[in-house]
């Protein structure tokens, strides 16, 4: 293999590693948006909760699988509670007001975790060891494959869920027209709680999968949340596949930018690309062109 190609491949794999993480976080944004048209800025905190709770439960003596189950369950409950206690009562509020509520929820959750579990960084063990896998001279860590694999599975599962189950269809219906969904006998309140729960589940899984790569602490969700939001927007809101493509694109732009242009400006390059995409496609890569109801 020519060295320039190996180098390119390595940049690509590096981009996919971060991109898969952004994608998984972005998917959580897309899911909640799909059901409720709310952008949940506390999505990053679900990611943080997944990682931190798994660490807390394992250090309390639980086996890793059990700790993972526990952490996911608690995070899902937190997500549902967030919907029930904070989003539902403010249902008729303005979009910006809802954004502020979720930001407040994020600050609150970070505060609670820092008080109860401390401010230190914690690692989780990799699922299948730390021996890099070589692909044509470039390398990738097995944990990154886990992130990629789970993201792919989640997209397929969600696709199936939304297309073939009554519950999934209810969520879609609620997203399109809440009133009509209600008239059709869909329990809209339940659907919304469920979508937050599902999204928290995705966030927690993301947090657990990436903790072996990046380590976790109470503030890890801030930047991941931001990148996930960017991924969801780039892909087009409310579109699961879009979030995945958006996340991977974001990761790859960052890594190619760092590799070929300037590592100092890789984040700026990524945002310039996002702005450029939005300029030509105001609803992201896969978003539907929205029409305003008058």
């Amino acid at each position: 293999m020519p060295p320039a190609f190996v180098e390119f491949l390595q940049f690509l794999l590096s981009g996919i590693t971060s991109g898969a993480i952004y994608a998984l976080v972005g998917l959580g944004f897309a899911l909640i948006y799909n059901a409720s048209h709310v952008i949940n800025f506390a999505q990053g905190e679900f990611v943080m909760l997944g990682g931190m709770l798994t660490w807390a439960l394992t250090s309390a003596g639980l086996d890793l699988p059990l700790a993972i189950g526990g952490a996911v369950a608690i995070t899902v409950l937190v997500g549902m509670a967030l919907e029930k206690l904070a989003i539902e009562p403010a249902r008729d509020a303005n979009v910006v007001t809802l954004i502020i509520i979720t930001i407040g929820a994020g600050i609150f959750l970070r505060g609670v975790v820092s008080v109860t579990l401390g401010k230190d960084f914690h690692p989780l063990p990799s699922f299948s060891g730390d021996d890099p896998i070589s692909i044509l001279g470039a390398t990738i860590m097995p944990q990154s494959l886990w992130v990629l694999g789970v993201s792919a599975l989640v997209v397929i599962a969600l696709q199936g869920f939304f297309s073939y189950t009554l519950l999934g269809k209810s969520i879609l219906a609620t997203s399109h027209n809440r009133m009509a969904a209600k008239l059709m006998g869909i329990n809209v309140g339940f659907v919304l709680v469920l979508s937050f729960g599902l999204s928290a589940l995705l966030g927690a899984m993301a947090g657990i999968l990436i903790a072996p790569i990046t380590a976790t602490n109470f503030e890890v969700g801030i930047i991941l949340g931001l990148k996930g939001f960017a991924a969801a927007i780039l892909g087009g809101l409310g579109n699961g596949l879009g979030a995945i493509v958006g996340g991977l694109t974001l990761g790859i732009i960052e890594s190619l930018g760092a590799g070929y242009v300037s590592s100092d400006y890789k984040d700026a390059i990524a945002f310039v690309v996002i702005l450029a995409v939005l300029f030509f496609m105001p609803s992201g890569l896969f978003g539907r062109r929205g029409t305003e109801r008058v």
Partner: peptide, 8 residues
Amino acid sequence: GDTDMVAQ
């Protein structure tokens, strides 16, 4: 908050 420094 970067998650991967392989490119650099």
